[in-house]
């Protein structure tokens, strides 16, 4: 299984690497914007998969951290901070801080209650963002200047931004994969499958979960920062609970706790949206039932469908 999914990863990243060279040849450069969108979604989804897939912590407030990241970058830019590395540090600090406070409280609960309390914190963050009247309030904020890398505009648009996002996606993907294979990841899964036993064995599972929660939040914040560079616009809608729902859809559709699941899910959603949207205007009439059918008939997610092994038995 590992070999096949590794080959798939290789193919995926090779395609993404080649896309800026190949796509302009067939005259479809707008597709690059679409791929950036899918990659940003994938980054946030990979971080959520650390929580849901490996940690068993279903958060319905993850988009709030994307929102915090985007707003930290936007507010920094509005106040004259231009260097993307400084903005990155600010984003990491801000999302980390918020995740620390909310995580300590949220991790006193588990299961459905964890889902509800993360929803509560997500909504609080959403309403906080709508109250930032100086930065657009409900309507959001269009940014007239974007971040630079020591004065260079390479991280602002076009293929420069494309490769920055691709690089971030690769580092995130590799990082989360390494984490999931490490002792830390194994403890996290042990705590997911049997918390009492993991605890009795001497692992402080709440601390492990909190660290996973912090990592996931900070990665989501980074995707928010890059989203600002791509969209040149922020609005509280980034942090709405429906966006958190979308992220769960991506992760579950792709396949929980799998190597490529979040990336496959993100590209699937963006492509389906684009293709169905091109065919009929009311594409959601097809997309909704499609989701239901996927749940009912494709249990292991997309990465399972693409794992062509016939010998795969019933999943646990």
């Amino acid at each position: 299984m590992t070999d096949r999914s590794l080959i798939l990863s290789g193919v995926l990243f090779a395609l993404l690497l080649a896309a800026p060279v190949l796509l302009p040849l067939i005259g479809e450069s707008y597709l690059l914007g679409l791929i950036i969108k899918a990659m940003l979604l994938a980054i946030a989804a990979i971080s959520l998969d650390l929580l849901i897939g490996h940690g068993g912590m279903v958060s319905l407030g993850h988009a709030a951290f994307v929102g915090i990241g985007a707003y930290t970058a936007a507010i920094g830019l509005e106040n004259g901070v231009e260097n993307i590395l400084v903005l990155l540090a600010m984003t990491l600090a801000m999302t980390g801080l918020v995740a620390l406070v909310t995580g300590i409280l949220a991790l006193r609960t588990s299961g459905v209650y964890f889902l509800m309390i993360t929803l509560a914190f997500g909504q609080m963050i959403y309403f906080t963002l709508t109250s930032l009247a100086a930065y657009g309030g409900d309507d959001g904020l269009t940014l007239w200047s974007l971040a630079t890398l020591f004065g260079s505009d390479v991280v602002q648009s076009g293929s420069g931004l494309y490769f920055v996002v691709l690089g971030t996606l690769f580092v995130t993907w590799l990082g989360i994969y390494r984490i999931s294979r490490s002792r830390f990841g194994r403890v996290l899964r042990a705590a997911r499958d049997n918390p009492e036993r993991a605890e009795v064995m001497g692992y402080p599972i709440t601390r492990y979960r909190l660290i996973a929660y912090l990592i996931a939040a900070m990665i989501a914040g980074v995707s928010g920062l890059l989203l600002v560079q791509h969209a040149e616009f922020v609005s509280p809608a980034l942090a709405a609970w429906q966006r958190s729902g979308d992220l769960i859809v991506v992760v579950v559709l792709g396949g929980l706790g799998t190597r490529n699941g979040a990336i496959l899910g993100a590209f699937f959603i963006v492509i389906v949206e684009e293709v169905l949207g091109a065919i009929i205007h009311e594409w959601r009439l097809i997309y909704g039932p499609l989701l239901v059918l996927m749940v009912l008939f494709a249990k292991g997610g997309l990465s399972d469908l693409l794992d062509f092994k016939s010998s795969r038995g019933t999943a646990p």
């Binding site: 889902l115 769960i248 997309y287 989701l291």
Partner: peptide
Amino acid sequence: HLDQVLATFGIIIFLN
């Protein structure tokens, strides 16, 4: 619960 959330989310999208 995750499957339930996903499927019912699909129904919301459809009916809206």
